[in-house]
Design a protein around this nucleic acid. Structure first.
Lengths: 171, 171
DNA sequence: CGCATTCACTTAACATGTTAAGTATCTTCG
DNA sequence: CGAAGATACTTAACATGTTAAGTGAATGCG
């Protein structure tokens, strides 16, 4: 047994100059853990169909918009360009999507979901929706809506530093 | 009485068999976007010091617990074993952490932060805390606490499917 | 004691996150 | 027209996420 720091409560380790918040209670960690808890519900089912989370995001995004430019798709699926580029290459090789360069502007390529992609989506969507329904029921629909509202506000107030957000209860 | 939403109102896109929720409003996306919005505040400062988000998590975890086994550290920093293994190798090469195998059990290795690691933390922590304070102020301290509470509940009710959580009124 | 099993990591392999650099196309303006 | 700059991706390089397999050390049990 090596020597322990003065074992008072856990708030005062002598080696630290700057006392930081309890690590596990930081906002990024809370968000990460919550998201992981949610994704853990979906991943096995997606995996059964040979899809990763991101590939599934892309297919879903495409299914709802018919066709889109790569940049637009990146924004919708919340992926960075390079990631999307790789994934589209793979999805195209699997014939789940189709690409054709726009006539008006040769730089842009229009991406759309293929028949096979639609079929795959149809085979996964029911399970996916069932899982989501289960989560909603477990957590509570109202609470879930509340949570999403707060997440949206958080995103907004960080994205636009000048937007005053409707906090009001704090000075 | 959980009745499936009759798909009369929202089955508008001709290519879709199964109407899915609006993509951008799914819980995983909300969590991802919120977390990204938060991390975007921290990343530049960490980068200035040559640290990634995960490396910073590990240093913070180590700073508060003196020494830990790898498995324990993985749990604390919320990293998978393989990721942690790689990162520890790099941090050790940079002399930010130290490792020694436990005497009692040669399989385990005890990881601790080095003097240099402590120094690095001391140089980053103030900025990090300042950023966190800014976020707290912008979003509102009370609201932030509320949000974290909900995130914790979400995590719990998904981790332990039998735990009844205090879910509203559903029977 | 011997050997299968478990345990605590580590490596490997593939996919994505993240930043920087590259390429081809389009636009602007002299 | 034509060179400079902007735009829409794509590649490259490195770090991490994720699953599976490997390695060496304890443990259980006949």
């Amino acid at each position: 047994m090596t020597k322990r720091p003065a074992d008072s409560a856990n708030a005062s380790a002598p080696t630290r100059q700057v006392p930081m918040r309890d690590f596990s209670r930081s906002l990024p960690m809370s968000l990460l853990r919550a998201r992981e808890a949610v994704m853990r519900q979906f991943r096995p089912k997606l995996r059964e169909h040979g899809l990763t989370e991101q590939q599934w995001r892309i297919l879903r995004a495409l299914a709802s918009i018919e066709a889109a430019e790569v940049t637009e798709l990146a924004r919708t699926a919340f992926l960075l360009g390079p990631s999307l580029s790789r994934i589209l290459r793979d999805l195209e090789a699997r014939n789940l999507i189709e690409r054709k360069t726009a006539k008006a502007d040769q730089r842009r390529s229009m991406v759309s979901i293929s028949k096979e992609g639609v079929k795959l989506m149809a085979s996964v969507a029911p399970s996916s929706e069932a899982i989501y329904a289960e989560i909603t029921q477990r957590f509570g629909a109202r609470k879930l809506a509340e949570l999403q509202e707060m997440l949206g506000q958080l995103e907004l107030c960080l994205a636009f530093p000048d937007a005053g957000d409707d906090v009001t209860d704090e000075t």
